[in-house]
Design a protein around this nucleic acid. Structure first.
Lengths: 110, 110
DNA sequence: CTACCGTGTAAGGAAATCTAACATCAAATT
DNA sequence: AATTTGATGTTAGATTTCCTTACACGGTAG
């Protein structure tokens, strides 16, 4: 009996090759690879070395391209991303601490 | 400003190449192509002729493989699929008729 | 016993992808 | 103004991935 990986968040599974990503976004493969070089996207790789992207990556690429259209440089976009990432991490951390507090002193099922 | 196709149902977008499908399902490419030959899956094609599958296809392939493991033949699986499809179509039809009736004689916003 | 079913495998070719390098042109810097 | 940098195009050659067709083979069904 074959089982499919249960986590199954289609949006985050890296399964799309660069040609298709190019079609979906309208960006050239050159652009997509360049944004990776600038550390804005992080595709997985097949054993053979081909890039694999998720739908989330596709959405991100579109956002990146829109910002660039607006004259924002890849470096600045990267700054924003790092900053946002730190905010998210802090948020995560807060949640975790709260979870531990609840586990020890919070309401528990009787 | 780049816009992403709004329908965006990741599950049904045909964007996965056969190698990745093989990885996701554990099936050989031979098997995947054979099930297509038996009219059980219907991938899209790139202009160059490469097959493109959706996550829904991936799930379907797993179901197919499980049935075959249970000794069900592709022909029978196909029968079931056609039958189920007809049921769904009838359901769709019913909904549509109901929708038209509502449009003409049903409650309407004043 | 024979025919069909599902799958493996091989061959040869075409499509898709990779990296690296050089070209271009606008915008920023000096 | 001259130069550098940023983003992208293009080319070349190599590698990977995918395609179709054909043949092999064991298992199951008639």
């Amino acid at each position: 009996m074959i089982l499919l990986a249960a986590d199954s968040s289609y949006k985050d599974k890296k399964v799309i090759t660069i040609g298709i990503v190019s079609e979906l976004t309208g960006l050239s493969e050159r652009q997509i690879r360049y944004y990776e070089e600038r550390k804005l996207v992080f595709p997985d790789r097949t054993p053979g070395g081909s890039r694999k992207y998720s739908f989330a990556d596709v959405e991100l690429l579109v956002e990146i391209a829109n910002k660039i259209e607006d004259g924002v440089q890849t470096y600045e976009i990267r700054q924003e991303m790092v900053k946002q990432q730190k905010i998210n991490e802090a948020e995560e951390h807060k949640k975790m601490i709260q979870g531990q507090l609840n586990a020890r002193f919070g309401i528990r099922k009787k």
